[in-house]
């Protein structure tokens, strides 16, 4: 494995939820990253944000690692869940709640319901 792949593996091994994104959770630098970080923040999910703009090797490395061409990318318990479109769809359908519940990741169910009410 390359250094980038080792760093990525270590991040997703040692954190239940990891979001590879452009910018940071408090200062996203791209609309798609901002949307996913916003959902996680609103749902009160504890996660590690990895700013790919800060490291060109990680920026390319994460695309190779997951065989996925775009950022953001969400990992839960070491498993690649998807990018912005998939996370948005899963949030609105309730699948993201189910995933977090089945993986033992705590989140604010009321907040998730509010997102669905506002976008229903």
């Amino acid at each position: 494995m390359t250094n980038a792949a080792e760093t990525i593996q270590s991040d997703i091994d040692s954190n239940d939820v990891v979001l590879f994104m452009k910018g940071t959770s408090s200062m996203p630098q791209c609309g798609f990253s901002s949307r996913v970080a916003g959902v996680l923040n609103y749902m009160g999910v504890t996660y590690k944000d990895v700013n790919v703009l800060a490291d060109e090797e990680i920026r390319q490395g994460i695309k190779d690692f997951s065989d996925w061409p775009t950022i953001p990318q969400l990992y839960v318990k070491g498993e690649f869940v998807g990018g912005c479109d998939i996370i948005t769809e899963m949030t609105l359908s309730g699948e993201l709640d189910q995933l977090f519940t089945s993986k033992g990741v705590s989140f604010d169910k009321d907040a998730a319901d509010k997102i669905r009410e506002a976008n229903g």
């Binding site: 798609f32 061409p69 775009t70 690649f80 869940v81 998807g82 479109d85 769809e89 899963m90």
Partner: peptide, 27 residues
């Protein structure tokens, strides 16, 4: 799976994604 579906679309559009297309939102 959702991931597999998007991968299939990305594969069909590999040339475009490697070239002019910066962002592709999809359902």
């Amino acid at each position: 799976s959702r991931v597999a579906r998007q991968r299939a679309v990305n594969a069909a559009l590999a040339d475009e994604l490697a070239g002019p297309v910066h962002a592709l939102a999809m359902k």
